[in-house]
């Protein structure tokens, strides 16, 4: 029962963050939001009894992907003043 409520809450958070990731104008915020989706997806995998997948998603989906996006953002930043 607890797990069902927890998964509903996680689902709501993830859908909210998906919306932010797609619709927000600021690219930094969009990437962070996509990272948060992966983060909570990983907790959801844990509830679904898949710790291996959760570990992979946390290390690769949420960690390395976010890092690589920021490298690209830094590269394509022209001499503009960010923010």
């Amino acid at each position: 029962m607890t797990y069902i409520i927890v998964s509903i809450l996680l689902g709501i958070i993830m859908l909210l963050m998906t919306g932010i990731a797609i619709l927000h104008k600021n690219m930094v915020v969009a990437i962070i939001a996509a990272g948060v989706v992966s983060l909570f997806a990983s907790v959801l995998y844990l509830l679904l009894a898949a710790p291996d997948v959760a570990l992979t998603e946390a290390a690769i989906g949420s960690g390395l992907s976010t890092i690589i996006f920021f490298y690209v953002l830094n590269k394509i930043r022209k001499n503009n003043v960010a923010e």
Partner: peptide
């Protein structure tokens, strides 16, 4: 997995 999360928050 929790340890990976700690690492992840630091790096990100």
């Amino acid at each position: 997995i929790a340890t990976v999360y700690g690492l992840l928050s630091f790096l990100a």
